[in-house]
């Protein structure tokens, strides 16, 4: 299954024809797969965030500023720059560790707005204020087939990130996450320190959200404070829920399906109504398919078996 998906990802540029539009869509899809997977990683400990744009954007700014200052390749600065959101994530996590559900959702949401405000006011000397700053490209556009190389390099990073998440979640850490999520008191009784694991989850999630943000920014070549926008915070939530919360495949499936739907509707010339479609889909999925699209094949099989029995 995983190998089939990987093979599909590897050959898809050739099947669809490697033109600029398709490659851009595919690259952004991969970036958002990393981003949603990072967001989803946090939900394994029972936490949720409505402000991941803070980390996404800080990754972009961190990596850009380092790349500009040192002249290193963006491929290196991405992983250094993401340290900034990881540190901020640790700080926010430390504040939020006692908070749950809607409190946590609101505080994380608030941090995204506070960080945006700081960027355009206090730190505008570095960030360029609302105008933003130019960011070095991942690869120079003079290299032949540079987008194709970009696609494969980002695909490699995506695979590494997801494999890393899988390893963490299968280890003792993953078990600890599950224990904290199901019953914090019992987890504590079993000798698990919930604070430590929550902070670890927050930091890891922030780090990889930052990696995703940096990748997007270096792909675009420009960064403005709009990257901290509410939309950017909500997308990974929508992708992960529609795909299936708390599964590794969920954010991947969700990102692919919703992005295709989104771009498909755009090509039909639908603008505002796209959001309405996404909104209705989200409501319907939460009510009728609470485990997301990944549970759909199982549900259909169940339904078929029931029908077969009746007949």
């Amino acid at each position: 299954m995983q190998l089939a998906a990987l093979a599909a990802a590897a050959v898809i540029p050739f099947l669809l024809g490697a033109n600029l539009y398709i490659l851009t869509v595919l690259i952004l899809m991969l970036v958002f797969i990393i981003y949603s997977s990072a967001w989803n990683f946090l939900t394994y400990t029972g936490q949720g965030s409505l402000g991941h744009a803070a980390f996404f954007g800080l990754g972009g700014y961190g990596s850009t500023l380092i790349a500009v200052a040192t002249g290193l390749s963006p491929y290196i600065t991405i992983f250094i720059g993401a340290g900034l959101p990881a540190l901020v994530g640790l700080f926010i996590g430390a504040i939020c560790v006692r908070l749950k559900e809607w409190f946590l959702a609101m505080v994380t949401f608030g941090f995204a707005i506070i960080i945006q405000t700081l960027m355009v006011s206090q730190f505008s000397a570095w960030s360029g204020g609302w105008d933003g700053i130019a960011s070095p490209r991942l690869l120079s556009s003079s290299i032949p087939n540079y987008l194709l190389i970009e696609y494969y390099s980002i695909l490699a990073i995506t695979v590494l990130v997801i494999v890393l998440f899988a390893i963490i979640l299968r280890s003792r850490i993953g078990l600890a996450f599950a224990a904290i999520r199901e019953n914090e008191l019992e987890a504590r009784a079993a000798g698990i320190n919930p604070v430590k694991y929550r902070l670890f989850a927050f930091m890891t999630s922030a780090y990889f959200a930052g990696v995703a943000g940096a990748l997007e920014i270096h792909h675009m070549g420009y960064i403005t404070p709009e990257i901290f926008g509410v939309d950017i915070s909500f997308w990974p939530v929508i992708y992960s829920i529609s795909g299936g919360l708390g599964t590794l495949a969920g954010p991947i499936v969700g990102t692919i399906v919703i992005t295709l739907l989104w771009d498909g509707l755009q090509s039909l010339g639908i603008s505002y109504a796209r959001y309405i479609v996404i909104g209705i889909l989200l409501v319907l999925i939460i009510i009728f398919l609470p485990k997301g699209l990944v549970s759909l094949p199982g549900r259909i099989r169940e339904w078929m078996e029931k029908r077969a029995k009746k007949a």
Binding site: T43, G48, L50, K100, E101, W102, A105, F234, V237, I238, I241, L245, Y272, A273, R274, Y275, I276, I278, G279, I280, L281, L282, V283, I286, I287, P290
Partner: peptide, 22 residues
């Protein structure tokens, strides 16, 4: 579950905002 109501509100936000924009 408490996360669901946050998520369903997100869906509602998208629906209401853009219906109003239309």
């Amino acid at each position: 579950g408490k996360l669901n109501e946050i998520f369903i509100s997100l869906g509602l936000i998208y629906i209401i905002q853009n219906a109003a924009a239309i």
